[in-house]
Simulated scan of single mutants.
Amino acid sequence: MGILSWIILGLIAGWLAKFIMPMRNVGLIMTIILGIVGAVVGGYISTFFGWGGSVTGFNLYSLIVAVLGSLLVIFIYRQIKK
């Protein structure tokens, strides 16, 4: 996946995760960063547990993995921010 694809997938995953687990005072750039980090974390965890390949492109599996990873990253971000 190219860098532009990672940014777009990160934006979508970050926005969906932010919709599920609302955060205040977090802008677009931070949403993208949390989404990209979440996609990487989700891909690593899914590969570690043998649930298939990592995030490979724009498909439903990649989006679900990225959103779940983003939710985990948002949870950790909230805990650190306290």
Rank of each mutant, 00 (worst) to 15 (best):
G53E: 13
G50I: 05
S46C: 04
I36D: 03
V26N: 00
K18F: 01
G52K: 06
T31W: 00
R24M: 02
L4C: 02
I76R: 10
V65D: 06
Y77S: 15
N25P: 02
G69V: 13
N59L: 08
L71T: 10
S70T: 15
W6H: 14
V55S: 06
G53A: 14
L4H: 11
L9F: 09
W51G: 15
F75V: 08
G2A: 06
L34P: 00
T31S: 09
G43S: 10
A66V: 04
M23S: 01
L71S: 01
L16D: 04
V40C: 12
I45Q: 03
I36K: 07
A13L: 12
V73L: 07
I8G: 03
L16G: 04
I45K: 02
I29L: 08
L68G: 15
I33K: 04
V37L: 10
G35S: 03
G35L: 14
I32F: 04
V67Y: 03
M23E: 05
V67G: 04
G43M: 06
V41R: 01
I45N: 02
L9A: 08
R24Q: 04
I74R: 13
L16Y: 00
V55P: 05
N59I: 06
S54E: 14
Y61W: 09
I76S: 09
S62I: 10
A13T: 05
G27F: 10
L34G: 08
W51F: 13
S54Y: 14
L16T: 11
I36H: 05
I76F: 09
A39P: 10
W6I: 07
T31N: 09
M23Y: 01
I29D: 11
S62P: 11
L11V: 12
I7C: 06
I29A: 15
A39M: 15
I76Y: 08
F48W: 13
Q79R: 11
L28S: 05
L71D: 00
L34C: 12
L68V: 15
S46M: 14
